[in-house]
Design a protein around this nucleic acid. Structure first.
Lengths: 240, 240
DNA sequence: AATATACGTTACAATTTGGTGATAGGAGAA
DNA sequence: TTCTCCTATCACCAAATTGTAACGTATATT
């Protein structure tokens, strides 16, 4: 998958770039509207998805969107917009955005939205086939654990883990996406919270605790503490 | 299923394209009357259905309809017309439209009308068989719930949910079509309301409330709140 | 064992989000 | 027209979530 990212704020661009690469996506970054449009027109068919910041130098994001839509009516387009400007959303959707995300966002959210949009686009391109409509598709699967962002449900040995709050779900999602990999508190704050958020590391602990409580209700612990480092998801202890 | 969409308004075309593709339909879009007719005549038998905007550049929609009907007397044809022009409806039906929808419409309505028309056409194409005339066909079925857009009735464990208003029915339809999938308020506004409508998210809450009241009269709750995310249809709690 | 550091736990205030009822506008029917 | 029902929106209250500080407990290091 190849993404065109049109974003002028350098640190935000860097952050996004990092997370996209973690997903093994190719990223092309343009730092203003003109450059973005040029990049796109140079090879319109090569991009699978575009993220477009609305607040851009040289050429306004809305204009860019319009120009892009003149060339391709279908390429998936996500707009990034400041939280307050609600009218942008209206206009954005009219100008052909498929989704928009308000800044500041959490990486896990953005990535999830991109994946969802890409999935939709892929399906509609494909020839008509057997429709798995109602068959839940899971984003994370191990022999004992599965999780779906579509339904926001998580299962441990087919028992639903119930009552998860948004943060708890995202946290579990992040950890479970890379089983056995240790995440520092700092990393988790970066992944699950807004990229502008710099808070207490104990916050992570507190959420882990509540998450563990809800997991314990249906099965053994799958979130381990790695002393001096952080936390990890590991359900391999259930294999025997 | 393959659809010929004759529609000049780009953003409306795009929106329709998106929802058609979600249904996994093939879509061919023509941006004026001439092009539409050309597309149709190039392969008259390849289309299963045509949507035709009446207000078109180059060649008037009515003319297009007449020309189409010269070639095929049976291809299902839906006209899209501005809300005020009532005379169009009369003329349209005389010129061979099978249905018409007033703009602006809500996606769920348009898709439902297309499905209904297509179903009718399919049945009448088929060799004379036992026609289940009055036997309701349901659009959504789970072990405890069924819903028919034809009769606009919904049943919970064979008990009719009564007194549903149009919006409430569409809302229930949208949610029930994808059981367990969480819909944000924003998504619901996009699906159930007109494409030109951008209103308060609390509006969804209010409709959900009234819908729940009517559901409660005949059985347990099948619409759940997913805190911080949205709402979902889930009747799996009734299985045991 | 002593110490320092990391972690777990709890309680609580602040914030966010959802539910609800009142109300007024508007469409459609009588 | 008048009437009725549907619909949208607002304001207020209730409920859930969240971040953080404080403090107790566990772990590693010396």
């Amino acid at each position: 998958m190849k993404i065109l990212m049109i974003e002028d704020n350098e640190s935000v661009a860097q952050m996004m770039d990092m997370f996209f690469k973690k997903e093994q996506w190719d990223v092309v970054n343009a730092y203003d509207g003109e450059e973005g449009l040029a990049q796109f027109n140079a090879a319109p068919d090569s991009f699978d998805l575009i993220t477009l910041d609305l607040n851009l130098p040289k050429m306004d994001g809305m204009q860019v969107a319009q120009e892009i839509r003149k060339t391709s009516k279908t390429v998936p387009l996500i707009m990034l917009t400041a939280r307050d400007s609600e009218s942008d959303q209206v206009l954005g959707l009219e100008l052909g955005a498929d989704d928009y995300v308000t800044k500041p966002f959490s990486p896990i959210t953005l990535v999830a939205r991109i994946k969802a949009l890409h999935r939709r686009a892929e399906v509609s391109d494909a020839p008509a086939e057997a429709k798995p409509e109602t068959t839940a598709e899971y984003d994370v699967v191990t022999p004992h654990f599965k999780l779906s962002t579509k339904t926001r449900e998580a299962f441990l040995d087919d028992e639903p883990i119930e009552g998860l709050t948004p943060k708890e779900f995202d946290l579990l999602h992040t950890l479970a996406q890379n089983p056995k990999q240790v995440f520092s508190r700092e990393q988790l704050l970066q992944l699950v919270w807004d990229y502008e958020y710099y808070g207490d590391e104990r916050t992570v602990d507190a959420h882990i605790k509540k998450l563990r409580q809800k997991i314990e209700k249906v099965g053994p612990q799958i979130i381990q503490t790695v002393w001096g480092v952080g936390y990890k998801f590991d359900d391999s202890g259930l294999d025997k």
